[in-house]
Design a protein around this nucleic acid. Structure first.
Length: 134
DNA sequence: GCCAACGTTGGC
DNA sequence: GCCAACGTTGGC
């Protein structure tokens, strides 16, 4: 089991919308590193959902329900999507500020590599964020 | 709205 | 294959 974090700008695709949809394919990734991460996702992996720009906080937990396949929004075979479904909304969103201030989280990719939109998390980091969000 | 970080592109 | 120019992302 692996753990991930994905970013979405709320005005583009929000957690609320995701919960209405119940399931979505995660498209729009046009960065090789993020793409490689998508390809490594396995069914059942847990994914934190982060609102970038507006909010700047982790708002919920999703899971991978379908592994990487050709991005239906383009013919370019470089790009893939995965299907995600919402699992749980965090009681308290975990803000970027909180994450940066946390000794155990200050080295995660979200902080160190701000522009990456799909990143892996260690189990301990994932657990810590959940802990902060409950 | 600005700017830093960083990935990508293209000229050489 | 290097590196400057450029574009995009995202925090502030």
């Amino acid at each position: 089991m692996n753990y991930w974090l994905v970013k979405s700008e709320p005005f583009k695709y929000s957690w609320e919308k995701f919960n209405q949809d119940k399931r979505t394919f995660w498209d729009g990734v046009r960065n090789y590193q993020a793409r490689n991460n998508l390809r490594e996702m396995k069914e059942g992996d847990l994914v934190l959902f982060y609102h970038s720009n507006e909010g700047k906080e982790v708002v919920g937990i999703a899971k991978v329900v379908k592994e990487a396949y050709q991005d239906p929004t383009t013919d370019d075979t470089n790009w893939v999507v995965v299907d995600l479904s919402p699992v749980e909304t965090l009681k308290k969103p975990v803000t970027l500020e909180t994450i940066k201030a946390d000794e155990r989280l200050k080295d995660i990719s979200l902080v160190r590599q701000g522009r990456l939109s799909v990143m892996g998390l260690k189990a301990a980091e994932f657990d810590r964020i959940i802990e902060l969000g409950s």
